[in-house]
Computed example of a mutant assay.
Amino acid sequence: MALKRSIATLTLISLTLFSGLFASDDAFAETHKIVLVAGKPSHPARMHEFNAGVQLMAKCLQDQPDVDVHFVLNGWPKDESVFEDTDAVVFFMDGGGRHEIVQENGKRLKTIQSWTEKGVGLGFMHYGVEVVADQAGEEMKRWVGGHYDHMFSCNPIWEPVFNQFPKHPITQGVEPFKIKDEWYFNMRFLAGIEGNQPVDLDGMKFVPILVASPSDDVRDGPYVYPQGPYEHIEASSGRAEAMMWAVERADGGRGFGFTGGHFHDNWGNENFRKVVLNGVLWIAKAEIPANGVEHPVSEDDLNANLDPKGR
């Protein structure tokens, strides 16, 4: 009887080991942690809705397999443990001299630099792509390939047509679209490149994702602030401009910049939404569905979690 029990036990162990060899990939899939950081409230209602925006993004990503999405509201977190073991961090917030990343006398910049040295992906959205060059310009070029530079870049409200896309995971499932937004352009890119063509530079692979050519009327202004126009913007008549771009860094990490996002209701546009959500997954090195991230957004979704702004 003891011999029979031993044989049965060995058979069970063998079957368990054998079945393990053929277990689905899902059983061993790596979880990709993403942290979305929203800035403090600013601008009138339904503009710069950072808190509502990151919560909407998190909802759209929650059903993606092997992804663990966290969000932080109202600026840099008091408890930085949320960043532990993260694969990607996205900043959707006001920028310039008040940018959350440049506060604490450079401490936060050093923290982010330490992440990139571990291969953490970074994304910066809308006003979040703007930094004061002397404060964090070199860091932004190193991390995501470029940044908005006050009075070098410009910020008109216009309606570009995006109808050609590079073959890239971020563009999977994205169809041609046009949408009115405060689309910044003429970024301060690494090595002075124009940013409208793919290029490999100093170990960084740079790919423009959303590219369109502003009309002369757009270049002639007015811009949101300052109203312009700037002679160097007008002098580049006919040139295509990148309004979203992606990079693969020499440290193994990834990054993107996205200059739209002024109007909250633009999240209701499927392709606007999809290209951003794909970008978030890509910098986290998570799998992007063949047709891109597909998650419907209702009017109730767009009205959820808006900041009280004197409505």
Rank of each mutant, 00 (worst) to 15 (best):
K178M: 13
E80C: 02
Q135L: 14
F165A: 08
V72E: 05
Q103M: 07
V247A: 09
G128A: 14
I179M: 14
Y184G: 08
S14T: 09
I288V: 15
E194P: 01
G97E: 15
R254L: 06
P308L: 03
P296Q: 05
G192R: 14
A38L: 11
E84N: 15
A290G: 02
N278M: 08
T9P: 00
A8M: 13
D251A: 04
P41E: 09
A27Y: 05
K107F: 01
P166M: 10
V280Y: 12
P77T: 07
S42H: 07
I101W: 13
T31K: 15
K4Q: 10
E270S: 13
Q64Y: 00
R254V: 04
Q113W: 02
A304F: 03
V132P: 00
H264W: 05
K40M: 08
V89D: 05
F92A: 06
F152Q: 13
A290Y: 00
E175S: 09
W267S: 10
N74F: 03
E84I: 05
V224K: 11
K274C: 05
W143L: 15
V199P: 00
D79G: 08
R311L: 01
D300A: 13
N105I: 00
S153I: 06
F92R: 01
P77M: 04
F258K: 13
T259W: 00
P160V: 07
S298V: 05
L109Q: 10
L277Q: 05
Q103S: 08
L306M: 05
Y148S: 05
V276G: 02
F272I: 09
I170R: 09
L73S: 07
M93Y: 00
K180A: 02
I170L: 11
S298D: 04
D251G: 05
Q113F: 03
G253L: 14
G53A: 15
G292Q: 12
N74V: 03
V69A: 02
V132T: 07
I193W: 10
I179K: 15
V120R: 10
S14H: 03
F185Q: 08
V280D: 08
G96A: 02
R142I: 01
D307E: 13
P44Y: 08
R311F: 03
M151Q: 15
T86E: 03
K107L: 11
G279A: 13
R311C: 00
M151K: 15
F18V: 12
N269P: 02
D94G: 13
N51R: 15
A290N: 12
F91G: 06
V67I: 14
I7C: 00
V174W: 10
V132D: 07
H232V: 09
D94V: 04
I283S: 06
M93C: 09
L3R: 11
K118F: 01
D87L: 04
Q227L: 07
D63K: 15
S215C: 11
P41D: 07
E270L: 05
D202S: 09
M57Q: 12
Q55V: 07
D220V: 01
S237Y: 00
H232E: 02
K33P: 06
I288W: 10
